[in-house]
């Protein structure tokens, strides 16, 4: 069981000693029980930090933002940024390090183990509260405890946990500078890819109907892309308006711009967008589930990314974010790779 005070003490200490220039963590949000990302730059703010079942955000996104949008205004990068990272978040950071997006010494990882539980899926909670609003959520062993106007409501964590947490194989942040909580690997409550397996038991007709429905509903607001730490490209190849014009952009680059899909949010273009995104996340997605959580129309994006993750695992034994120096899925080749499909 993690004592949040330990996290606060560590953050305060790091800032006070000047070992980090900021701590990215969670604090109480402005809406109900939900935590929100916090950017702490002075030791006094450390007590704002919280750790509870609503800390679902993958904060590594803000490491990307830090480099992408703030790098240019910082003359001297100086000290690293500390970040609070769950198992999946820490693996995202490893992928970013693998891709040289920043250096290991630029980040101080304060790992938090999800131990026996995971984070909440808000959509699963509502039916249990009968319309009441929770003002606080807390871990307690295998349970989540919610505070509502009618008093405390104790629920088994597995009933309201996010699907990805139920299937999570590695709830412990292996890559870290400091870590809190126990390593309870192998505690998964559902088989890996259980939701995907259930989905794939259906016939192709049913699956097509399912996806047609969702691809029709996607409004291409790009929330999934915005919330994803892996979607850090300057130009999204399937969104031509993101084409970056910098001092290094040549006339030839401009002339050779490709518009792979049209801007209208219709099924064919939505399919291309979501499929291309899934392909580009193959071997990189660590199943933090943020894309699906951020989606305003509830497109089950995890199923697409999970499919790629499972293929990579079954075909190539590939685990995304396993090690910083490890090979990347799409750029590495081994003689032992399956090649029966090449004739």
């Amino acid at each position: 069981m993690i004592n949040v005070q330990d996290i606060r003490d560590t953050a305060r200490d790091l800032l006070a000693k000047g070992e980090v220039r900021a701590v990215i963590g969670y604090r109480r949000g402005s809406r109900g029980m939900l935590a929100e990302p916090a950017f702490i730059t002075s030791p006094e703010q450390a007590d704002e930090l919280v750790w509870d079942p609503t800390c679902f955000h993958n904060l590594s996104l803000y490491l990307v933002h830090d480099r992408k949008f703030l790098d240019h205004i910082r003359k001297n990068p100086g000290a690293p940024v500390a970040i609070i990272a769950k198992g999946c978040d820490a693996r995202s950071i490893v992928v970013l390090l693998q891709e040289h997006y920043f250096k290991r010494e630029d980040v101080y990882i304060i790992g938090v183990s999800c131990e026996g539980t995971g984070v909440l899926d808000e959509r699963k909670l509502a039916p249990h509260l009968n319309g009441a609003q929770a003002s606080n959520a807390a871990f307690d062993g295998d349970d989540f405890v919610f505070t509502t106007a009618e008093g405390e409501k104790r629920l088994q964590a597995r009933e309201v946990m996010a699907d990805r947490c139920l299937e999570c194989r590695i709830p412990f942040p292996k890559e870290h500078n400091a870590v809190f909580g126990e390593d309870k690997a192998g505690r998964q409550m559902e088989a890996p890819f259980a939701a995907l397996t259930r989905f794939e038991e259906q016939g192709s007709g049913e699956r097509w109907d399912f996806w047609s429905h969702h691809f029709d509903r996607c409004i291409r607001c790009f929330a999934c892309r915005s919330v994803c730490p892996m979607c850090y490209c300057d130009e999204c190849v399937v969104d031509s308006i993101t084409f970056p014009v910098t001092t290094e952009t040549t006339a030839e680059d401009k002339a050779n711009r490709v518009r792979w899909i049209e801007r209208s949010a219709v099924r064919s273009e939505n399919i291309t967008y979501l499929m291309t995104r899934a392909m580009h996340l193959a071997g990189r997605c660590t199943d933090c589930g943020e894309c699906e959580r951020a989606c305003p129309v509830n497109v089950p994006i995890r199923l697409l990314n999970n499919k790629m993750e499972r293929e990579a695992r079954e075909q190539f034994g590939f685990e995304p974010g396993a090690s910083i120096g490890g090979p990347s899925l799409v750029a590495s080749f081994l003689d032992s790779d399956p090649g029966d499909f090449i004739r």
């Binding site: 997006y101 130009e235 910098t246 290094e248 680059d253």
Partner: peptide, 10 residues
């Protein structure tokens, strides 16, 4: 295309 390269090394 240098403006697009993020240096991921793939």
């Amino acid at each position: 295309r240098r403006s697009h390269c993020t240096g991921c090394g793939m």
